[in-house]
Computed example of a mutant assay.
Amino acid sequence: MHKPLLHAKAAATHMATAALLCAAMLGIASTAHAADLKSGLKIAFVPKQINNPYEVIADDGGMAAIKDFKGVGKVVGPSDAGASSQVSYINTLITQQQDAIVIAANDANALVPYLKKAMSQGIKVVTFDSDTAPEGRQLFVNQANAESIGRGQIQLVAKLMGGEGEFAILSATPNATNQNTWIKWMQEELKKPEYSKMKLVKIAYGNDDDQKSFVETQGLLQAYPNLKAIVAPTSVGIAAAARYISTSSSKGKVAVTGLGTPNQMRAFVKNGTVKAFQLWDPGQLGYLAAYAAANLASGTITGKEGESFEAGKLGKRTIGANGEIILGPPTTFDASNIDNFNF
């Protein structure tokens, strides 16, 4: 009677030991996979513009990741967000034989020939935040699904303006890939019958310049006296619009929303100028882009759909269609939660 019990106990012990061994082996495999990254990788980040607060946070996230895997990182880029302003930096990085270039593109097509030249010389190219045409890079690290960002912006502004009235969009540059993709989805969402009483009267461009965005806001309010909301899917634009409206007679009458960082928007939420806005963590975006570049440069991935890699504290990530990697859904910030975030 006791023998079967002993056999059962022995079997259970054997299975538990096997499971522990298996788990240990998986742990070793996982660690080995993370350790497959080459040491001393030279990775350069090229932001849209070097002094853009959003880009600084994103680049800092990239540098933190590079420090994690003992690479050599640097940030170089233009002070303006012009279509061709990043070209000279790309050419210099090619000459310096960087292992990877991580770039937030100012233009979908203008940079492609130069990035192709980089790739032909063995330099890995990852776009993040703002993509090029697919032939200009191996991977694109996207904040969130572009469709959900665009549609989400309309859903939010509809709520803020009671589902009816005139509103305008204050974008970055006319060529900004990410802005244009989001706006396309915003216009698509607007076609739904529940938005039939809302009218998009103007798409203005502040060129990701604080003063120009400020002046464009003033112009919108003058041109459209019945305006009920401004949507700025750019961190420079939303802050400039909020700053103008916060000291104008439009405060409390014209809603300001879009995409911005909690730290730059906190004062405007506290003083009632802004009720709600959205964003992801740009630091995590840069962090993920750096790990994607390091894995490409180390040969642990090639950029094909379905491949996975370890991205430090962000865990395992999988490459989707067209070399796209998604960070995650955006967060809506308002007075109830803005003090929980610091970036």
Rank of each mutant, 00 (worst) to 15 (best):
3 K>M: 12
9 K>H: 10
10 A>T: 04
19 A>G: 13
19 A>Q: 11
20 L>D: 06
34 A>Y: 08
34 A>Q: 13
36 D>Y: 00
37 L>W: 01
38 K>A: 07
38 K>L: 05
38 K>H: 13
41 L>C: 06
43 I>F: 00
46 V>K: 04
52 N>R: 02
57 I>K: 05
57 I>C: 10
58 A>I: 05
59 D>V: 15
62 G>H: 08
63 M>H: 02
69 F>T: 14
75 V>T: 15
78 P>A: 15
85 S>F: 11
85 S>K: 15
92 T>V: 03
94 I>E: 01
95 T>G: 00
96 Q>D: 14
98 Q>C: 12
101 I>A: 00
103 I>A: 09
107 D>C: 10
112 V>W: 12
112 V>L: 04
112 V>K: 01
113 P>N: 03
114 Y>S: 14
115 L>N: 03
116 K>V: 13
117 K>S: 12
118 A>S: 09
123 I>V: 14
123 I>L: 03
128 F>A: 02
128 F>L: 11
129 D>I: 03
130 S>F: 11
130 S>E: 07
132 T>Q: 05
134 P>K: 12
141 V>A: 04
144 A>L: 03
145 N>Y: 12
145 N>R: 14
146 A>L: 11
153 Q>P: 00
159 K>P: 05
164 E>H: 08
165 G>I: 05
165 G>T: 06
166 E>T: 10
166 E>G: 01
167 F>L: 06
171 S>Q: 05
174 P>Y: 10
176 A>H: 14
177 T>D: 13
180 N>K: 15
187 Q>M: 13
191 K>D: 07
193 P>G: 12
195 Y>V: 05
197 K>R: 11
199 K>R: 07
199 K>C: 01
199 K>F: 02
200 L>F: 02
203 I>K: 07
203 I>L: 02
204 A>P: 04
205 Y>I: 12
206 G>R: 08
208 D>R: 09
211 Q>F: 07
211 Q>G: 00
218 Q>N: 12
223 A>C: 09
224 Y>D: 14
225 P>M: 11
227 L>C: 09
228 K>P: 06
229 A>D: 05
232 A>E: 04
237 G>N: 07
238 I>M: 04
240 A>L: 09
247 T>E: 03
247 T>Y: 03
248 S>N: 11
257 T>G: 01
260 G>K: 07
261 T>N: 05
265 M>Y: 01
265 M>A: 05
268 F>R: 02
270 K>D: 14
271 N>V: 15
272 G>Q: 14
277 F>L: 03
280 W>V: 05
283 G>D: 11
283 G>M: 08
284 Q>S: 09
284 Q>D: 04
285 L>Y: 02
285 L>P: 04
286 G>W: 07
289 A>N: 09
290 A>E: 14
292 A>C: 07
294 A>K: 10
295 N>A: 02
303 G>K: 11
303 G>M: 12
306 G>I: 08
308 S>A: 08
309 F>Q: 01
311 A>F: 07
312 G>N: 08
321 A>I: 10
322 N>I: 14
322 N>Y: 05
330 P>Y: 05
331 T>E: 06
332 T>L: 02
333 F>P: 06
335 A>M: 13
338 I>H: 07
